[in-house]
């Protein structure tokens, strides 16, 4: 379908434009020659791409093989060994006394051996008879 209702003036103007452009058009062969990839280059690009991919995979595998995984720390052990940064605040004077069970006859301040020596032999109880 052609919309040709009274547009001959415009068609004439555009035809003049077309003639002008036709004189400026580059030669088809020259443009096509520039559009053609140079011989061998087209086959070389996929080859280069493949080689790059293979070398990247090889490097990744080598790095992974070189890495020896150490024994994984158990989460329970790591929690047990953990010490809070403010832990020292809990160590009050006399902390050791509070941590040990007192014994009868032993000094609560001195070590057990010294404590026993200082206390000496027990006085004999006099019989009332």
């Amino acid at each position: 379908m052609r919309d040709s209702d009274d547009e001959s003036d415009l068609r004439t103007a555009f035809a003049a434009l077309r003639r002008e452009d036709a004189t400026e058009a580059p030669a088809f062969e020259a443009l096509l020659a520039r559009a053609r990839p140079p011989g061998g280059r087209r086959g070389l690009l996929p080859l280069l791409g493949g080689l790059t991919a293979v070398s990247v995979v090889a490097v990744v595998l080598a790095v992974m093989a070189g890495r020896r995984p150490g024994p994984a720390p158990s989460p329970a052990a790591s929690i047990e060994q953990w010490i809070a940064p403010t832990d020292f605040l809990l160590r009050t004077p006399g902390y050791e006394i509070l941590q040990t069970t007192p014994r009868i006859g032993a000094s609560p301040v001195l070590p057990p051996a010294e404590g026993a020596a200082l206390s000496g032999p027990r006085p004999k109880r006099r019989s009332m008879s």
Binding site: A25, P26, F28
Partner: peptide
């Protein structure tokens, strides 16, 4: 064949 028109 269409080169001229394509350029336009």
């Amino acid at each position: 064949e269409l080169h001229g028109a394509s350029f336009g």
